[in-house]
Design a protein around this nucleic acid. Structure first.
Lengths: 218, 218
DNA sequence: GCAAATTAATGATTTATTCAAG
DNA sequence: CTTGAATAAATCATTAATTTGC
């Protein structure tokens, strides 16, 4: 692991942990004094020099930034594609996603089959604090209207909501409920295409999966 | 297993298997579209809703991280009974880094026990490319003299250099070395205290670690 | 063997933090 | 600097595993 004649620093797990903890705690670019003290502190757990600490923070900061950038640029692009290049089970799963099940969906009324007591509990909770209204963005890139849609939990149900405001004269109401929502309309199901990978389907050439999604609007 | 009137989702073994496979395959935080599709797929094996899938990935990711952290921390505890700073304690540690320690500094002679060959290697490297001679500003705000100090790598060692010129009649020489430095004086060691982590260290009493830091001055 | 009691896992919620847009 | 979206962390709550006494 860390041979005596090794030419480069091999941090021990403890050292890495402490360094990461320091980084998370706010030290991004330690100054000279901090480096000296960190070095002395970490030398308790193994051979280490100041330059190692210095370089570690340099590299770590750079790589965190890099990770963040890549996340921002690629996450939404790649993550919604349900694939992983070197996993055969998953590829077969994707195939199964592509074919039969999703083509048999037809529109149905919002079921809401929860016992009334459950709904009331949720309403009470939501009245106390709005946190139940969890919302997140829906980001299939090929459909701008879907890009702006949301998924939202409401009374134990999860609803996908699409902003159709551009077809209305007045701006649409905000896409969240407070305690009791207005009556809902469930739109007809529409196809959503998601890209998947099969052997040669790299991010450039997506294979289309056709599925259908129920929309609910206030 | 999953009673009809059950209040919470009881995943079937197939559902868990598929979810784990997806997680291993790279899906850590599925978006709305992915959740919808996964839900439809898994509903073949039993009752399931989108929120179940959403929560499953949230919890699984969090608990995988937790498992890793606990594993590492246990390693640390068993090996060295060391501390693992949480943020609160670590901020105190940072405070101790900042100012008061520097008020106890005094001199002692520099050991500088590096083998000659090591110094020559570094000199050769530095001759080829100057990158190793990294210098940066030292920015502890409470001490103007330390503000102007530098850290510099010299012969594999990192030195802190404080400008003491204001006690001299002539302006001090620039705070960096070329190939051979003048004799050095290293400041006396001083204690730095840090404390322990909340979660992983709860069984053992908080173990204060006292370490010492050496400063080297020209 | 078998349940009551206890503990461990894990689903579901709530709170805090982070990042970036306005 | 403030704020909203996203999500990580912490916590609560229920189910499953298991221990234990009979």
């Amino acid at each position: 692991m860390s041979p005596a004649g090794s030419t480069r620093w091999c941090p021990t797990p403890e050292q890495v942990m402490i360094l990461e903890e320091m980084y998370r705690s706010g030290i991004k670019t330690p100054n000279a004094s901090q480096i000296q003290q960190i070095t002395s502190h970490l030398s308790f757990y193994g051979k280490i020099e100041g330059k190692n600490v210095f370089y570690w923070f340099q590299n770590h900061k750079a790589r965190e930034r890099q990770k963040l950038r890549r996340k921002l640029s690629k996450q939404l692009q790649l993550q919604h594609q349900l694939y992983h290049p070197n996993n055969h089970h998953f590829l077969r799963y994707l195939d199964s996603l592509a074919s039969p099940a999703f083509q048999h969906l037809s529109y149905y009324n919002s079921p809401s089959p929860f016992p009334q007591i459950r709904v009331d509990e949720d309403a009470a909770k939501a009245a106390k604090q709005q946190v139940m209204n969890y919302t997140w963005k829906f980001d299939v890139p090929e459909r701008p209207d879907i890009d702006k849609s949301m998924m939202k939990m409401y009374g134990g149900d999860w609803l996908m909501m699409v902003d159709l405001g551009h077809s209305l004269s007045s701006p649409p109401p905000p896409c969240y409920f407070t305690t009791r929502p207005p009556p809902l309309k469930t739109l007809q199901l529409f196809p959503v295409t998601a890209s998947s990978l099969k052997e040669e389907c790299n991010n450039s050439s997506p294979c289309n999966i056709t599925t259908k999604v129920a929309l609910t609007l206030p």
